[in-house]
């Protein structure tokens, strides 16, 4: 329905969960939320077609979307939570911090002091730091070198995908592998990556200059509202247990649908091998059942 459904390989993850060919996921009959946000779950510039359902991550987002006039809204949980349900966590060693500096999207520019941010990261993080940049910033040698000179490892998870072009089904898989290598996840703004990290078992932290997008107009209350609403997730040290509760709710990990229901909702076909079940860990299966 919408090209954003394929961002980050989201539709690919869900197709695999549904027992379908994840190399070429079918069309989702609806709009799938593709990032954590504090509005109705959709991008602010999203164009809506009446009656096309919204597939949202969390119950809180659904309530908010409903209050903003959206109907046909269904909570399905985030693709990230499905990925984690399918990819069991191994007994690997975790070390250091993966740090996500706030990024803009295509066509946006960040106004902020990278040097000051680097100083803050150094002051807080005890172990090795991996900085994960958005592909735009990663391509900018100037920004990349800024962080490299500070002694950080600089990575990029990839390109999220364009209008049905250059789709990257491996995006979330790479992100998961990186997150599971680190003990902590941090950012200067509360964002999807921080919640992903929490759900993947990292201790979260949100601190440092939140930076600004050039000409950024705060929508839905912007950063001040995020800091008020999710105050518990802000600061260099955050209680991991309460953070996990919040991440489970925001990513809808407690609201995952069984494959048959998800297929029905997306109007996806039955898998060729009808008895194929997704690889879901036993522990997660009970969470799905709940």
């Amino acid at each position: 329905m919408h090209h954003a459904n394929h961002y980050y390989g989201h539709s690919h993850v869900l197709a695999r969960y549904c027992g379908l060919d994840d190399r070429d996921p079918p069309r989702i009959h609806g709009y799938l939320q593709h990032g954590w946000n504090i509005g109705d779950g959709m991008a602010y510039d999203h164009e809506f077609v009446p009656g096309v359902p919204l597939f949202l991550w969390s119950e809180r987002t659904r309530r908010r979307a409903w209050s903003l006039g959206r109907r046909q809204t269904y909570v399905v949980g985030s693709p990230w939570a499905y990925l984690l349900a399918m990819e069991p966590d191994g007994p690997q060693r975790r070390e250091g911090t993966i740090w996500y500096p706030f990024h803009g999207w295509e066509g946006q520019r960040i106004v902020g002091d990278h040097d000051r941010l680097i100083d803050e990261i150094r002051a807080v993080e005890p172990g090795p730091v991996t900085v994960c940049l958005y592909w735009q910033e990663y391509r900018s040698t100037r920004v990349r070198q800024h962080y490299e000179r500070a002694g950080f490892r600089v990575i990029c998870h990839g390109y999220r995908g364009g209008r049905w072009r250059d789709l990257d089904p491996g995006f979330l898989h790479r992100q998961l592998a990186e997150l599971r290598r680190h003990r902590r996840v941090a950012s200067n703004r509360l964002c999807s990556a921080v919640f992903y990290g929490i759900l993947a078992g990292c201790e979260p932290a949100v601190y440092g200059d939140p930076m600004q997008l050039a000409g950024e107009a705060p929508i839905w209350g912007g950063q001040p509202r995020i800091r008020r609403q999710w105050a518990d997730l802000h600061g260099p040290q955050v209680d991991p247990d309460s953070a996990r509760v919040l991440a489970v709710a925001e990513l809808g990990a407690d609201r995952l649908l069984p494959p048959a229901e998800l297929r029905r909702l997306f109007r996806w076909p039955e898998p060729a091998d009808r008895h194929q079940v997704p690889m879901v860990r036993d522990a997660e299966r009970s969470e799905v059942a709940r």
Binding site: G51, P53, Q72, Y74, A260, E261, R264, L265
Partner: peptide, 19 residues
């Protein structure tokens, strides 16, 4: 309007664990 349009029986059936 709380359910996907036009497929209520099928959704309920799927949710009940039947095909």
């Amino acid at each position: 309007d709380l359910w996907p349009a036009g497929e209520l029986t099928a959704v309920l059936t799927t949710m009940s664990g039947r095909e």
